[in-house]
Amino acid sequence: MSSPLIFSTKRSSFWPVVVLCLGLALVPVVAVLTKQGHWVSLTTQMMILALAALSLDLILGIGGLLSFGHAAFIGLGAYTTGILIQEGKGDLLIALPMSLVVSGLFAFVTGIVALRTRGVVFIMITLAFGQMAYFAAQALYAYGGDDGLTLDGRSTVFGLKLLSNKIVFYYLTFACLAGCLLLLQRLSRARFGRVLLGARDNAVRMETLGYDVFRVRLMAYVLSGMIAGLAGFLLANHTEFVSPAYAAWQRSGDLIFMVIIGGVGSLWGAVGGALTYLLLEEGLSGLTEHWKVIFGPLIILFVLLTHGGIEGVVARLRDMMAGGRHD
């Protein structure tokens, strides 16, 4: 330990990320070899969820901003893509940047209002803005309204139907997830990330140091919204379907669950959280159609039984696994 430890909240998570990425890269190979084709689709879905959870973790874990409307950005990305596909302009080169722009713009505008508040009010406002997006999707009568819209197909790439191949689509999703993981990993350790973290702990202090906390948070919020929009782009293509339900507030709650179970502020934990969520959903819904009757109390128990807050427990567990002491 010659170089002083700057961040106390997390250890170097370089190797877990590498192992995780390698593992994910091999899934289609193994699936093809063992003729378990549905693994590819299921893992694709998991990675899309992970991407969305990752985007939330940027503002929640590092920024300390509990957004309860994060599904809105997914919905915006998905609808932008879906509408463009229906209008015959669904090429990746148009749909992808447009999804990012739309979700980023929404984050920018709503962020200007929401980031003026804090605490409970911030939670409620993001929830309300999320609902706004949800109702906007419902009002899109020409594109299915309440029922949602089944798409004609997936985005083309330079006019080629590359993404219809689920292996190709898998690797596109994988590349997006790996790219965003790398980006956020670097960002959280760079100057920007440290300012965001400082503002989480002590915003007034950051301002007296000369930082414009509002601006930094807004930047993080927009970036987070855009990554969630990217997840929306992928989701629309993956399911070939868009629905207001993508932007529903329960979705936002699910995302929070994923981030927390994976460990707040641990970026690769968002991937683990998404995986856990999907496994729980698959496993419990196999038991009963009323799986949420089990899932709900599981969440409650998880919160109640983890004394000193969930973050504390995750940190303790991680310390234990790393063989370090905890004080």
Binding site: I260, F295, L298, I300
Partner: peptide, 16 residues
């Protein structure tokens, strides 16, 4: 508890 814990636990209650 933190707002995060409160939000998550009561969200679980809603699902239930």
């Amino acid at each position: 508890r933190s707002h995060l814990d409160q939000v998550l636990a009561t969200f679980g209650l809603i699902l239930f």
